[in-house]
Write a protein that binds this DNA or RNA. Structure first.
Lengths: 217, 217
DNA sequence: CGGCCAAATGAACGACCGTTCAGGGGCAGT
DNA sequence: ACTGCCCCTGAACGGTCGTTCATTTGGCCG
């Protein structure tokens, strides 16, 4: 057995052969998203992506410098949008840190439910980018974590949050990481087919977060 | 530029050339763990693994049928051990669901802090296994989630837990998923070099979990 | 010392990779 | 009708992949 590309839960057929209607650069982005999400960056070939939108391998290089740049392009765009949405949600939520936290969770979780494919790729495939390109994605991640830490710090200062201690100290960064981990990975298992809606998910996670940080009612 | 394998945050040198002391099958397992964790299954070559323990490519096939079987072997062993530890911790914790939950979190989080490499591989590389082999890993995952759901159900029944609602219903499975997500992904960012110990992490996460499910004091 | 066999070697195989590039078709402006 | 430009094609390049296999090694038993 010398075959390669058994590839992530044996998805087989790219199927599509007819040319995508959209401008080619967007068709490529969309096809790449789908393929990366289903089978993972390193096993998806340039030929796979281009076949999926009805073109041939070489045409990719009229729109992107490399397969690596394509991945960075699609990750960076969704990551930037996410950062923008989070900032906006917090800014619009008023001064109460409880409202800020709830607004943040709502936006973050609902986006990770609705745009599962994009979130999945952005969070699972970063490691394949070369060092230069990965840096600004990580910066955006840190910025988002910073927003959460800021909300927690304000809540503690205002006497509205009473988060658990870690080794005697209040480690707000660890708590923010723990919360972000659970919000982010919703995209790994939530299915829109179930009986629970995105709205329900957002409220559930917001409740759990407020309880976890010891928010006063 | 036609090179391949820039490979996950540009780790370069396997370095080791001298033969590993241990019996070869264990040396191979150890080297594979390290390499898969650092760079990811699909970009780590058989040649990389064998060079890292001082052997040549062909020798792998005296011990494993394929690269795929090697991955399954190392994932299945740590997954099985994890399942066993979780069951044991819950069994030894007595009848109070609060103690059970705390004991579970303690074992689960501490293991994911201490054996970061193993946990990382087991959780990130599953997707590369073929359908047959991935099945029993998923069964073990479901079993572990089942333990958590069982603890929550008992806590609710005993009137000791008051978990948040999701869309009017109590969705214990969703809550268990959310909690397991945060416990599992500790292995992605916890570094033993920091000021916070594994013990602190276990307590922090146990506190957050008990608060999230509304445990009575 | 000779025979045995598990284990290791390293060349070889067939396949596929990301990327390049000469060639060509279609359509705007002149 | 001609030019120029954009975009696509598909063969080709140099390289790496997982796996196989004839051959060699090296330790143990008699």
């Amino acid at each position: 057995m010398t075959k390669r590309k058994p590839a992530r839960t044996e998805v087989v057929a790219p199927a599509v052969v007819e040319r995508d209607q959209r401008p080619p650069i967007e068709a490529i982005r969309a096809a790449a998203f789908q393929q990366f999400a289903e089978r993972g960056y390193p096993v998806v070939t340039v030929r796979d992506i281009m076949k999926a939108c009805g073109l041939t391998q070489g045409a990719l290089y009229n729109h992107f410098k490399s397969k690596d740049e394509l991945l960075h392009d699609i990750i960076a765009s969704t990551q930037g949008e996410l950062e923008r949405l989070c900032q906006q949600a917090v800014a619009e939520a008023g001064g109460d840190p409880r409202a800020k936290l709830a607004a943040f969770v709502r936006v973050y979780v609902m986006r990770h439910c609705r745009l599962r494919v994009e979130a999945l790729v952005a969070n699972r495939e970063i490691g394949w980018l070369d060092a230069g390109r990965v840096a600004d994605i990580r910066r955006s991640r840190r910025a988002i974590r910073g927003i959460v830490v800021g909300i927690l710090a304000q809540g503690v200062e205002d006497g509205l949050f009473d988060p658990p201690l870690a080794g005697g100290r209040r480690d707000l960064k660890a708590i923010a990481m723990a919360l972000l981990d659970q919000w982010t990975h919703v995209s790994m298992w939530y299915g829109p087919g179930g009986e629970i809606t995105e709205e329900d998910m957002a409220r559930l996670y917001a409740d759990m977060a407020l309880r976890a940080v010891g928010a006063r009612p």
